[in-house]
Amino acid sequence: MATEFKHKDIIALRDLSKDEIELLISTAESMREVNGRAIKKVPTLRGKTIINLFYEASTRTRTSFEIAGKRLSADTVNISPSTSSSTKGETLADTALNLLAMKPDIIVMRHAVSGAHYFLAKKVGCSVINAGDGAHEHPSQGLLDLLTMKDRFGRLDGLKVAIVGDITHSRVARSDIQGLTKMGSSIYLAGPPTMMPPGVERLGNVTVCSTMKEAVSDADVVMMLRIQQERQGKTLMPNAREYSRYFGLNPENLKWAKPDAMVMHPGPINRGVELSSYVADGSQSHVLKQVENGVAVRMAMLYHVCGGELAE
């Protein structure tokens, strides 16, 4: 495992080495101790200012980053689209320079455009963390998924992970593919052909399956993706019921996986579409564990990018 993290920004798991990912996971494991005690605060980032700039709706990720910053004693400020000047036509570059004039140490951003963070990081001197950009990556979700799987199995190499759903629009899938491939897991993808991007095998140790059964059979982990109704064109699937019949996870087809397989979902769940309530609330579901680990992982990311800023 690497003992140091030299990056100022975390934009994609693709940019990190296996050692660096292991370091972030190990730090996150240590951060959990802080979250479990009565006084959930450490002074590490005292005096640092974190701006959460969310151009897309988010409850989980934004709250999680905000709590993570506060538990490290940083001051966190949230900016969301309805209250920001982007509704008045301000460009991302101008918003960035204006925020920078207020001397933040870290900007956590979610943006609808893939790669917007690389642009932002070039414009600003402070650290940039990607909280989701278009259909590119969602590194904090990828890391918390890795941590949750490691909790359950004690390792990540050799795991068979099925990812089922709308791969095309899923930045979670891309971060998971990058992270899992580096850690030595095998990824099996399933979804309607209209939601399967051509050439996705080239991203990592990925097998594209023609049916859900092929992907889920014998899997250690079944990762269900949310059907992103806000990103769908009209033609990708006939209707939610048909989708659910072929690509929804229910107690019956979960039996294809290993008996103790874990079920994961990045949330928010469309109950009865990609995940039946029996499975979502069942004993194999780790959905809430993922949310819990999210805070610890984001604390680790904030902690290490602050040191990376000094290293440059």
Binding site: M1, T3, E4, F5, K6, L23, S26, T27, E29, S30, M31, E33, V34, V42, P43, T44, L72, A300, Y303, H304, C306, G307, G308, E309, L310, A311
Partner: peptide, 23 residues
């Protein structure tokens, strides 16, 4: 106890060290 998160020289430490386990 691991004291990494309570250090007073963390601002000058680059890059940040890994955090040990408090138990």
């Amino acid at each position: 106890i691991d004291i990494t998160l309570y250090r007073d020289d963390i601002k000058s430490q680059a890059p940040h060290k890994s955090v040990g386990k408090t138990d």
